[in-house]
């Protein structure tokens, strides 16, 4: 009950901010853009997929159109992924530091609420908001593709949950930085850096970072970081496999789940030791 109250309060808190409405507005524009721009023209030679009136595929037999649409959706999902994640972090990062502010944290923690419960409630609240936003966004695009091409790729719709899970993993970084620094700027910058650079560099450490040194310690540290931190790049590849109906690599998800859980537990431990 207390956890549900916290989740709902976080929902209300985030929906009271303009940032989320900007995200929803952009999502709506992209959805409408998809609906207006994507079309399938049936010709004697086959189906031609068009974007903004221009063909994006040669005439394709009807039974192969599905594959083309899956490809388009994969490209779109890849392109939108960073936007959703970055904007999502921007819209939700204040949830943790705001609840730890003097005058607010006193009110929360004077209630029969353990510190980890407060963190969990806020964490799940932020993730729940992003689930709603991503479902709205991806669901809208899925609907647009379905209406315009008659290809109803359920895996694309289900990728909303995959993306939300990925957001939850990124938000664990926002959480720990929020608990440590008690402001929104550092978690935003930290998670942006992680998403845009650190994760990609660690993912391709053998091709790039290992070139700088052959030291076993150096390489051991990089390997350690790769396995400790959530592997977003690995999950992104799996996301593409999901939308393309290929067999998904589950290892990055299991690793990210363990990693994010460990980060959460560590955040709760730091929180427990803090004086407010």
């Amino acid at each position: 009950m207390k956890l549900l109250t916290l989740i709902l309060a976080t929902f209300r808190e985030l929906f009271s901010k303009a940032t989320l409405y900007v995200l929803l507005g952009i999502s709506t524009l992209i959805m409408l853009g998809t609906l207006a721009s994507v079309s399938a023209e049936h010709t004697d030679e086959g189906v031609i997929l068009k974007a903004f009136g221009n063909p994006v595929s040669p005439p394709t037999p009807v039974e192969e159109v599905e594959t083309l649409v899956f490809g388009m959706q994969t490209g779109l999902a890849k392109g939108l992924f960073f936007g959703i994640m970055l904007f999502g972090v921007f819209a939700t990062a204040s949830v943790i530091p705001d609840s730890l502010e003097k005058g607010t944290v006193d009110l929360y923690l004077s209630k029969p609420l353990a510190r980890w419960e407060l963190l969990l409630g806020k964490y799940l609240g932020a993730v729940a908001v992003m689930l709603a936003v991503i479902l709205y966004f991806i669901g809208g695009i899925w609907l647009g593709f379905g209406i315009r091409t008659d290809v109803w790729n359920i895996q694309f719709l289900l990728s909303s949950f995959t993306m939300t899970f990925m957001f939850a993993c990124i938000f664990s970084i926002v959480l720990i930085l929020g608990v440590v620094f008690r402001n929104a700027a550092i978690p935003i910058i930290g998670s942006f850096l992680y998403l845009m650079f650190i994760d990609n560099l660690l993912d391709s450490r053998e091709e790039i970072l290992f070139l700088f040194s052959e030291s076993k310690i150096y390489r051991g540290i990089l390997d350690g970081l790769y396995y400790i931190l959530p592997q977003i790049a690995g999950m992104q590849r799996s996301l593409a496999e999901q939308i393309l109906h290929k067999s998904m690599e589950w290892k990055p998800f299991v690793q990210a789940l363990l990693s994010s859980s460990a980060i959460f537990i560590f955040s709760a431990w730091i929180m427990r030791r803090k004086d407010f």
């Binding site: 209300r12 009271s16 003097k102 006193d106 009110l107």
Partner: peptide, 12 residues
């Protein structure tokens, strides 16, 4: 508990 300088969410 009524803390000093309490802050309630302004949107509520």
């Amino acid at each position: 508990y009524l803390p000093e300088n309490h802050r309630y969410p302004g949107y509520l």
